[in-house]
Design a protein around this nucleic acid. Structure first.
Length: 269
DNA sequence: TGTGCCCTGGTA
DNA sequence: TACCAGGGCACA
């Protein structure tokens, strides 16, 4: 499940593969994706050069030489599969971009919830999301002020991308466990000390995510970070398993239609 | 502020 | 065979 570290790693792989190259062909095979990127939008990409690849929250932004911007969101299961032009289609390929040098970038997405959208030159505006958690923009003061305006439970508030950019369901549960905060605590009831702990925990879990080790590096085909992820989670998907801190069984609950995991002893209501 | 929907592979 | 997973959006 790609969250911020995984998306940054994917963007980095993309930069290394195709930055500066020109798009020679675009194929979109899934109907849902064709709705987001129709034939006219696909044709408009041809001949454009990839001048910059940014990431904001979980969104990848591919800037093109004609001023257009290609916005890519992996949602649940999206990923890049990079190879050469005449490779057979990888599993769950939904779209394929081939550059003039013959590099193939396939957008794979088993659940087909991901989105690729083209913004015509001059029409792109920055995503309306909160501060990047791993930058200095994510301050205790700002976080505290935002949470003070929210009466909802802290867990779903953390998933709101306006509050802090790029935190998803897994790392929200993990950060709350690390900060010893019950997921149902109303956001505005959190003291400055607890907000500070939570901010530090968010930064800690994101920067220690398995994909974070790929920042600035290229993963190889033999790397299997899924296995690492499953063994490193403290609460996520561990219902009934002992808390690694106190031994009490981890509890699963549902908030805002999302699974939440917490330790009933370490994270008191 | 909460709920349902989009999607489909994996699991019970 | 039915149900569950969930990010982000539309809607009530």
């Amino acid at each position: 499940m790609p969250e911020l570290p995984e998306v940054e790693a994917a963007a980095q792989r993309l930069r290394e593969a195709v930055l500066g190259q020109t798009i020679a062909s675009v194929t979109v095979t899934h109907p849902a994706l064709r709705r987001a990127l129709p034939a006219a939008g696909q044709r408009a990409l041809l001949g454009a050069r990839l001048t910059r690849i940014d990431r904001r929250a979980k969104i990848q932004l591919l800037h093109l030489s004609d001023g257009a911007v290609l916005e890519v969101h992996f949602r649940m299961t999206g990923d890049w599969d990079i190879g050469v032009a005449n490779d057979p289609a990888p599993a769950h390929e939904r779209a394929r971009i081939v550059t003039e040098t013959g590099i193939r970038v396939s957008f794979t997405d088993s659940r087909a919830l991901g989105i690729i959208r083209r913004h015509a030159p001059g029409t792109f505006t920055e995503p309306d999301v909160g501060p990047e958690p791993l930058t200095d923009a994510f301050t205790v003061e700002g976080f505290l002020a935002t949470l003070a305006r929210r009466s909802a439970p802290i867990k779903p508030v953390l998933l709101d991308q306006h509050v802090v950019a790029g935190v998803g369901n897994i790392y929200a549960s993990e950060a709350l466990w690390e900060a010893r905060i019950h997921p149902a605590t109303p956001a505005r009831q959190l003291s400055k000390a607890r907000v500070t702990r939570l901010r530090d925990a968010i930064r800690h879990v994101l920067s220690n995510a398995p994909a974070a080790r790929y920042y600035g590096a290229t993963p190889t085909a033999s790397d299997d970070h899924t296995t690492d992820a499953e063994t490193m989670w403290q609460v996520y998907d561990r219902e009934g398993a002992p808390c690694t801190r106190c031994g009490r069984a981890i509890v699963r609950s549902v908030q805002a239609a999302r699974s939440t995991y917490h330790c009933p002893r370490c994270q008191r209501a």
